[in-house]
């Protein structure tokens, strides 16, 4: 997306003054809404969209039983795939690799995806489907989607029949319980991290930092830093057991070309921690019903 120099000046000055084009301050997030469990055939799914409907992402998680790699016989695998709706012009080919590199090591404990070492482990396929991405900060939306979908993912309960029992020969076999009530959540899934992208806008000597940039603001940014935050908020229990735990930074990634002074990273991380403490990222599924009741669904 190209943007004129005058517009970019306008946007940057607005960010400096603390009144962005849509009235937010530098540290304000936009509201994301989500609907869970749309797809009957996946183990867990989420649909996430901005309240303004400019960004719309589907996430589906499918689990399959695979034979583990011989190098790590007791670890499951997680893979992230990204696909775009046909006709989506602003596709970012790095999104898939960035998402996998940043999130996969922190999503779930891979040891817990093991069923029978050397023979059966879970493989989680996370499919991200971008329908529209006009609202900017696509990677943030995707990570919210993955976060929400993983919370709701159910794996069927599995009993391992040891080798030489039940006619399986000298290999263990598995029995899958088809009852949905027996299915279980992935253990340790409450701590799935999210990505917060900080866009740095050039203004004289000191860059202006903003979170959750719109696509226009992204066009003005000279650099972007993805910060992976482990916020430790299990959606329902957070109110009951309110822990004053600082969010933890799991990973940092600078997107795009160009250089960034190393000292700036310190500012970026402290800015993110500050912003996320007053975070307005509300992921709720009840909002959708509110919307559906009151809006005629368009487009």
């Amino acid at each position: 997306m190209s943007i004129s120099t005058s517009e970019s000046k306008f946007i940057i000055e607005g960010c400096r003054d603390g009144c962005r084009v849509d009235g937010r301050s530098r540290k304000d997030f936009r509201l994301y809404s989500s609907v869970v469990g749309d797809f009957a055939l996946s183990c867990g799914s989420a649909r996430i969209f901005l309240a303004t409907k400019e960004t719309h992402v589907l996430v589906s998680i499918k689990a399959e039983l695979v034979v583990p790699a011989s190098s790590s016989p007791s670890e499951g695998t997680v893979e992230v795939h990204v696909d775009y709706m046909q006709g989506n012009n602003n596709r970012d080919d790095d999104l898939e690799s960035t998402l996998s590199n940043l999130l996969v090591p922190h999503l779930v404990d891979k040891k817990k995806l093991c069923i029978a070492p050397d023979y059966f482990v879970w493989k989680l396929n996370i499919d991200v489907f971008v329908i529209t991405s006009g609202g900017g900060s696509l990677i943030d939306a995707c990570s919210h989607g993955i976060h929400t979908a993983l919370q709701k993912t159910l794996l069927p309960s599995i009993t391992v029949v040891p080798a030489n029992e039940g006619g399986g020969g000298n290999k263990p076999t598995v029995q899958v319980d088809s009852d949905i009530k027996a299915a279980e959540c992935i253990p340790g899934v409450e701590n799935v991290p999210i990505i917060v992208t900080v866009s740095l806008l050039k203004h004289k000597k000191i860059p202006v930092m903003i979170v959750d940039a719109t696509s226009e603001e992204e066009a003005c940014a000279f650099s972007k830093v993805h910060v992976v935050l482990d916020r430790d908020e299990s959606s329902s229990s957070s109110s009951s057991s309110k822990k004053d735990r600082e969010p933890m930074i799991c990973a940092l990634h600078k997107a795009g070309g160009g250089a960034l002074p190393f000292v700036l990273l310190q500012d970026v991380t402290s800015f993110v921690l500050e912003a996320s403490s007053s975070s307005r990222v509300v992921v709720s599924d009840s909002l959708h019903h509110l919307l559906q009741d009151n809006f005629s669904i368009q487009q």
């Binding site: 009144c19 962005r20 849509d22 009235g23 937010r24 301050s25 304000d28 936009r30 509201l31 809404s33 309240a51 303004t52 909002l287 509110l290 919307l291 009151n294 809006f295 005629s296």
Partner: peptide
């Protein structure tokens, strides 16, 4: 209602009540 909060769904409904 701060300016940015105008775009929250509940506020959109309030603000555009007469046009829908």
């Amino acid at each position: 209602t701060q300016i940015a909060n105008m775009l929250l769904p509940e506020n959109i409904i309030l603000l555009t009540n007469e046009f829908r």
